[in-house]
């Protein structure tokens, strides 16, 4: 005749410990209005305050530094276009892309671009183009290095901006210089 399994003393104690907790949780209803903890509340209005997720300060610092450099590049395009109107068409795409870069960088909460003093354009149009090309390449190198130190979407954003700056710098480099460099 089979004997019924007997509960060990340890199992009985464990069940006794777990059960009250299960009963207590079973009494909770989280689908009712007003249930649960209210979260942060504005003391003046008594309304719940929506909190925006905070971004890693290191990411904000890195993107803000990039935004400052992009702003400086934009100012370079503006001052060059103003001094040499004949270059306006050639510089239009770069100016537009830097505006896009800045807008994208500023989408991250906390990112701010300092407004540096506009750089003076060079005395000749070819020198001005060469200076812009040099600045683009320097920015590309800086942003690529910064991208390596970040991760996720901010890393990708900086890498894509660096790639765009590399393209713009290459396009602005006079053909002779390109041939010399290759």
């Amino acid at each position: 005749m089979p004997t019924e399994p007997r509960l060990s003393r340890r199992a009985v104690i464990a069940t006794a410990v777990v059960l009250p907790g299960a009963v207590a949780l079973g009494g909770c209803k989280d689908d009712e209005a007003g249930s649960g903890t209210p979260g942060a509340v504005d003391p003046k209005t008594g309304q719940a305050v929506e909190e925006t997720p905070t971004v890693d300060p290191a990411v904000v610092a890195s993107l803000s530094a990039a935004a400052a450099q992009v702003t400086l590049l934009s100012l370079g395009y503006t001052s060059t276009s103003r001094k040499f109107p004949a270059l306006r068409t050639q510089l239009a795409a770069g100016a537009k892309y830097h505006a896009s870069h800045l807008a994208k960088l500023k989408e991250t909460a906390g990112v701010q671009a300092t407004t540096p003093k506009a750089p003076a354009a060079a005395s000749t149009s070819s020198a001005a183009l060469a200076a812009l090309a040099k600045q683009e390449k320097a920015a590309a190198a800086a942003h690529a290095a910064a991208a390596v130190k970040l991760s996720g979407a901010p890393a990708r954003l900086l890498a894509m901006i660096a790639a765009s700056e590399l393209q713009l710098g290459t396009k602005l480099t006079p053909a002779k210089k390109k041939a010399d460099a290759s």
Partner: peptide
Amino acid sequence: RTFAVNGLLANAGAQLSWGGTPVAFP
């Protein structure tokens, strides 16, 4: 990540060699 960033930059540069033009976000 370093390899990937360098790869992206190389692709962006190569695009110009094959008739491409700069874009905002390669």
